[in-house]
Simulated assay, not measured.
Amino acid sequence: MSVRQRIKSTAIFKRLLAGFIFISAASFAAEKTEIKVGVIDSFNPEFSTQTLEPTLKFLNSKLPAYRFVPVSLNSVNPDKELKNNPVDFLISSAGTFHELSLSQGIVHVATRKTILSDDPSASEAGAFVTLAKREDLKELRDLKEKVVAASQPNSFDGWLVAQHEIFKNGLDPENFFKRSVFTHFQFPDSLMLLIQGEADVAILSACVLEQLSNEGLIEASDFKVLAQKPQGVLRCARSTDLYPGIVFAAREDIPPKLKWEVTSALMSMPPTNDYEWTIASRFSKVDELYRDLQLVSCNFN
Rank of each mutant, 00 (worst) to 15 (best):
L16K: 14
A18W: 10
F20H: 05
I21D: 12
I21P: 03
A25S: 15
A25F: 15
A26D: 13
S27C: 13
A29H: 11
A29G: 05
A29E: 15
A30H: 14
A30R: 09
E34C: 02
I35V: 15
K36T: 10
V39P: 11
I40H: 07
I40L: 13
F43K: 02
F43P: 00
N44T: 08
P45Y: 00
T51M: 07
T51W: 00
P54F: 07
K57I: 00
L59D: 01
S61Y: 08
L63P: 06
A65E: 15
Y66K: 04
R67F: 11
S72A: 10
L73I: 14
N74E: 15
N77Q: 07
N77H: 11
P78K: 06
P78M: 12
D79S: 15
E81N: 14
K83M: 09
K83C: 00
N84M: 13
N84A: 12
N85E: 12
N85A: 12
L90Y: 06
L90C: 07
I91R: 12
S92A: 13
S93E: 13
S93M: 05
T96M: 14
F97M: 06
L100K: 06
S101T: 11
L102P: 02
G105I: 08
I106Y: 09
V107G: 01
H108P: 09
H108S: 14
H108I: 01
V109T: 06
A110I: 02
A110W: 00
T111E: 02
K113Q: 14
I115D: 07
L116C: 11
L116E: 09
D118S: 11
D118N: 01
D119T: 03
D119Q: 07
P120A: 09
S121G: 00
A122K: 13
A127L: 10
A127Y: 02
F128D: 01
L131T: 00
L131Y: 01
R134Y: 05
R134V: 08
E135Q: 08
R141N: 14
R141H: 09
R141P: 00
D142I: 01
D142W: 09
E145Y: 08
K146R: 15
V147C: 00
V148K: 03
V148A: 09
V148Q: 03
